[in-house]
Computed example of a mutant assay.
Amino acid sequence: MTAPYRLIGSTPSPYSNKLRALLRYRRISHVWVPRTVAVEAEIAHVKPQIVPMLRFPEETDYRVDSTPLAHALEARHGARSVVPADSADAFLCHLIEDFADEWVTKIMFHYRWYYAADADFAQAWIVDEHQPGADANRRAQAMAYMRERQQGRMALVGCTSDNAPIIEESFADLLAALEPHLNGAAFLFGSRPSLADFALYGQLKMLATDPTPQAVLREKAPRLDVWLRAMDDASGVEGDWRESGAKPAPAIAALLGLVGRDYLPFLAANARAWEAGEEEMAVQLRGRRYAQAPFRYQVKCLSALREAFAGLDAGSRQRIAPWLETAGCLEAIDAQGVSA
């Protein structure tokens, strides 16, 4: 019998939840291993030290980064694909997944460490999972270290007091975009979940668990809260992709509007600042100044989106270009003017 995949992750990690839910939906045999002190020696050599870490059945080492892992699984397991069959929808799926992984995670991180009640909750959750059975003194020290470390990173990733109104408005608009549509058996690209659904799920599950955003989500988006619970294990879902060539569903159109308003202007400003060697990137979002340190990884994200758009067949590009333009996305993505 072939050994199952071995997934090491953490329940407070949005990306761990994303990949675990994807494995469950695809009915891929795997063993879930919480990242506790008991497994640290096993994974000490893995670079970078991020979760989730996935070991393939025939391999001895672990791979990291949820998006490449999802695509590696897509290439190996044909059944129950999470990438829409229509190439234009596959690109939109890529764009929304990237938005969830790189922008919605700022919303998650902001709420988790900005408010005292959430930081209290998170530090205990993280430490108690990683060090089960720690005595009171060790637990208190670990929690204080975790809180100081994470809050010390807030300015680096843009989760500052100055940026807080932008981030919280973006969260409210995200809930408004999804609540009317993602409920019951509905998903972004049909009656089956896509990689974009799983990426949103990973971040939103954290926001539906941490105290302050949980209260907001339950008040503003109660049906979305139920959808998140269903997404945790969608192994019983049977469904189809939406009709090829169809106009964007309302949820997709609303999400593209958020991508064009918040995420792509941030990515473009980040790329300009990185390439100019600047220590700070700044951009006007929602009528306010948003600033943080530029990141190389997000330069790669923008490049990957542009390459994916340019790699579409001409018909698919021309079909979705008006949708992207309406949402304010096209200029940043179509840097070479290939849609013309």
Rank of each mutant, 00 (worst) to 15 (best):
A3K: 07
A3Y: 05
P4N: 03
L7W: 00
T11K: 01
S13V: 11
K18A: 02
L22V: 12
L23N: 12
Y25C: 06
R27Q: 15
S29V: 10
T36V: 09
A38P: 03
E40Y: 06
E40T: 12
E42W: 04
E42V: 10
I43R: 05
H45I: 10
V46I: 12
V46T: 11
K47P: 10
L54Y: 01
E59Q: 14
T60E: 15
T67K: 07
L69A: 10
H71S: 15
E74M: 13
H77V: 13
A79C: 13
A79I: 12
S87R: 02
F91S: 01
L92I: 00
L92G: 00
C93K: 02
F99N: 13
F99W: 09
Y111H: 05
R112G: 09
A119K: 09
F121W: 11
Q123A: 12
Q123D: 14
A124P: 08
I126S: 12
E129A: 01
Q131V: 13
Q131P: 03
D135I: 09
N137P: 12
Q141D: 03
A142D: 09
A144G: 01
Y145N: 05
M146Q: 10
E148M: 14
Q151D: 13
G158E: 15
C159F: 04
T160D: 07
D162Q: 13
D162R: 14
N163I: 14
A164Y: 03
P165F: 10
I166S: 08
I167N: 10
E168S: 05
E169N: 10
F171M: 14
L174C: 07
L178V: 11
E179I: 03
P180D: 08
P180S: 05
P180W: 03
H181L: 00
N183G: 15
A185F: 01
F189N: 00
F189T: 01
S194H: 07
D197C: 06
L200K: 01
M206G: 11
D210S: 05
P213V: 11
A215V: 15
L217T: 12
L217P: 02
E219K: 06
A221S: 12
R223L: 13
R223D: 15
D225Y: 06
L228T: 06
M231N: 01
A234S: 13
S235I: 05
S235C: 08
S235H: 05
E238I: 08
E238S: 09
E243G: 00
S244W: 00
P248A: 04
A249D: 02
A251W: 02
A253V: 02
L255T: 03
L256A: 05
G257S: 11
V259D: 01
L267N: 01
L267K: 01
A268P: 02
A271I: 13
A276K: 07
A276W: 07
A282R: 05
R286P: 05
R289G: 07
R289E: 11
Q292I: 14
Q292M: 15
Y297W: 08
K300C: 07
K300L: 08
L305T: 14
E307C: 12
E307T: 13
A308Q: 14
A308G: 12
F309L: 15
D313K: 10
D313W: 11
A314W: 04
G315I: 00
S316G: 09
Q318I: 00
Q318F: 00
R319G: 00
P322Y: 03
P322R: 02
P322A: 05
L324W: 02
T326L: 06
C329W: 01
E331A: 06
A335N: 09
A335M: 07
V338D: 05
A340S: 03
